[in-house]
Computed example of a mutant assay.
Amino acid sequence: MLSEAGTPRADRRLRRARQATLLSLVTGVWASLLLPAVGLFREPEPVRAALGAVGVLAFLIAQTAVLYAAVTPWLDPRWRRRFDLALAGAAVLTVPLVGPVAAGAWPTWAWLGAALIGMAPLLVRPRAALAVAAAVLLVSVAVAEWTGGSVARHLAVTGGVGAGIAALNGFQVWFWDLLVDARQGHAAQGRLAAAEERLRFARDVHDLLGHSLTVIALKAELAARLAPVDPERAGREAAEVQRLAASALAEVRESVHGYRAVDLGEQVAAVAEVLRSCGVRCTVPSSPVDLPQPAATELAAVLREAGTNVLRHSRADWCRIHIDREGNVARMTVTNDGAGGTDPDAHSHGLRGLADRLAAAGGELRVRRQDAVFTLEATVPVPS
Results as ranks from 00 to 15, higher is better:
77 P>T: 12
110 A>E: 00
71 V>W: 01
145 E>K: 14
108 T>F: 08
127 R>K: 06
142 A>W: 11
55 G>P: 04
69 A>R: 05
70 A>K: 03
60 L>Q: 12
59 F>M: 13
72 T>F: 11
160 G>F: 07
115 A>C: 11
131 A>E: 04
141 V>Q: 11
138 L>G: 12
128 A>D: 14
105 A>W: 00
148 G>N: 05
151 V>W: 11
51 L>S: 07
108 T>C: 09
140 S>E: 12
54 V>K: 11
76 D>R: 13
81 R>L: 15
58 A>G: 09
65 A>S: 09
99 G>T: 11
114 A>E: 10
135 A>T: 02
156 A>T: 00
156 A>K: 00
55 G>K: 10
107 P>K: 09
137 L>P: 00
140 S>P: 02
72 T>G: 06
134 A>W: 15
91 A>M: 10
116 L>K: 10
84 D>R: 15
48 R>D: 02
154 H>T: 01
77 P>E: 02
47 V>Y: 08
159 G>T: 00
63 Q>M: 09
114 A>Q: 08
79 W>I: 03
143 V>P: 05
122 L>Y: 03
114 A>S: 11
67 L>W: 01
114 A>N: 03
160 G>Q: 08
143 V>K: 04
65 A>M: 12
83 F>S: 14
70 A>H: 05
156 A>R: 00
67 L>G: 06
134 A>N: 01
62 A>F: 02
110 A>C: 12
85 L>T: 00
155 L>K: 10
107 P>M: 10
71 V>Y: 03
100 P>K: 14
159 G>I: 07
130 L>T: 15
75 L>S: 13
130 L>M: 11
60 L>G: 08
61 I>H: 02
100 P>A: 01
148 G>L: 07
60 L>H: 05
108 T>Y: 13
128 A>I: 13
136 V>Q: 06
149 G>H: 02
150 S>K: 08
113 G>Y: 13
51 L>Y: 07
60 L>F: 04
160 G>H: 03
51 L>I: 11
141 V>F: 12
154 H>Y: 15
157 V>E: 04
135 A>D: 06
97 L>N: 04
110 A>D: 04
108 T>V: 13
65 A>K: 06
81 R>W: 13
151 V>N: 07
155 L>S: 07
49 A>W: 07
141 V>I: 15
154 H>G: 04
111 W>D: 01
59 F>A: 06
128 A>Q: 15
98 V>C: 08
48 R>T: 13
97 L>D: 08
68 Y>M: 13
57 L>E: 07
140 S>W: 14
65 A>D: 14
59 F>T: 09
122 L>V: 15
120 A>K: 09
51 L>N: 05
131 A>P: 01
115 A>K: 01
107 P>I: 00
84 D>T: 09
95 V>D: 10
86 A>R: 05
124 V>P: 00
122 L>G: 01
100 P>Y: 15
56 V>N: 05
72 T>C: 12
135 A>P: 05
104 G>P: 10
140 S>A: 10
110 A>R: 08
147 T>D: 10
133 A>V: 14
58 A>C: 10
110 A>W: 09
48 R>A: 13
134 A>I: 14
107 P>D: 11
130 L>E: 15
64 T>D: 03
93 L>F: 15
78 R>L: 12
145 E>Q: 15
153 R>S: 07
94 T>H: 14
49 A>Y: 02
124 V>Y: 06
51 L>W: 15
52 G>C: 10
118 G>H: 06
157 V>Y: 02
151 V>S: 06
